[in-house]
């Protein structure tokens, strides 16, 4: 029974990682941009929610509704004025620019909010739990997983059922031809990054409620998100969810054997999957 419990906890943890990874996966799938600052942008969103909570005395869930459009604007501006300039065949410039951005955001937050641990307080729901057959699950972890599924379902609907999604897919397949059809790739990219930042805000909400955060934790979260995206396969959002859950389960199993092995087990699962399938579990695109 302990094993069932461990695996369920792992799946729930995977929901959080999938949420971290969903925005990354979207941007990666559409413009092949590896955003090394994604983790720090999530932390930035968490501090933004915290600021709104402190200023207006709102519940974090409501505060996130205010933070989300702000983050959309941040993503839109970032893509329009910085990242669009470095997209191209050479992968070095975008990697280095987002790397620089990561350092700037991290230390900017450190200067303005200090290195103290912060937490978003959501009230009694934090400690609530549900009996689920023989095991008990926390309401917050369950809510996180459900949110991850909803976010990924919504992104998929957007991708395959709307005009905007059509533009996304067209630009992803061939930006030049899409341009000939009257789509402006730079505009499409800016909107995509804006949406990714809205998803990052949702991730930040759960990050902040479920654990302490400080300006320096971005990269540590980012590495799990990247693992989820890469294991899942480029451009597949459901693959990202599967990847997140795989990492979560591996970590939970590792921790059950020896608490020191939690993180290590996740990384090793990542390596094993890629040794067997270098392009991930469900690759959509051909690169």
């Amino acid at each position: 029974m302990i094993w069932v419990d461990t695996i369920v906890q792992g799946i729930l943890l995977g929901g959080l990682y999938a949420l971290f990874a969903a925005g990354l996966s979207l941007v990666f799938g559409i413009m092949r941009l590896v955003n090394l600052a994604h983790g720090d942008l999530i932390v930035l969103a968490a501090f933004l929610i915290l600021t709104v909570v402190n200023l207006l005395g709102l519940n974090p869930f409501v505060a996130a509704l205010i933070a989300a459009p702000v983050m959309f604007a941040v993503g839109w501006l970032l893509q329009s004025y910085v990242l669009n300039r470095v997209l191209g065949d050479d992968i070095l410039p975008p990697l280095l620019v987002t790397f620089g951005l990561s350092v700037v955001i991290q230390n900017g937050l450190l200067e303005s909010f200090s290195a103290d641990s912060q937490k978003l307080s959501a009230g009694p729901i934090e400690a609530a739990s549900l009996p689920l057959g023989p095991i008990t699950v926390g309401v917050m972890p369950l809510l996180t997983l459900i949110s991850a599924v909803v976010v990924i379902f919504a992104l998929n609907q957007l991708f395959y059922r709307t005009k905007l999604g059509q533009a996304f897919r067209a630009t992803s397949d061939d930006a030049v031809t899409a341009g000939l059809m009257g789509i402006r790739p730079r505009n499409v990219f800016a909107i995509a990054t804006g949406i990714a930042m809205v998803v990052a805000t949702i991730a930040a909400l759960y990050l902040g409620i479920r654990a302490n955060f400080d300006p320096s934790i971005g990269p540590a979260r980012l590495i799990y998100a990247f693992e989820a995206v890469i294991i899942g396969g480029l451009g597949s959002l459901w693959g990202t969810l599967a990847g997140g859950i795989l990492i979560g389960v591996a970590q939970a199993l590792g921790a059950a054997v020896n608490p020191e092995w939690q993180i290590l087990a996740g990384h090793i699962a990542f390596v094993i999957v890629l040794l067997i399938r270098p392009r991930g579990l469900f690759p959509r695109a051909n690169d």
């Binding site: 910085v82 620089g100 350092v103 700037v104």
Partner: peptide
């Protein structure tokens, strides 16, 4: 100035790449 030099370093890196 604490970590300011890291911020400056990051910004210079970005500007150079751009």
């Amino acid at each position: 100035y604490g970590t300011v030099y890291l911020i400056v370093l990051g910004l210079i890196g970005i500007v150079i790449m751009l």
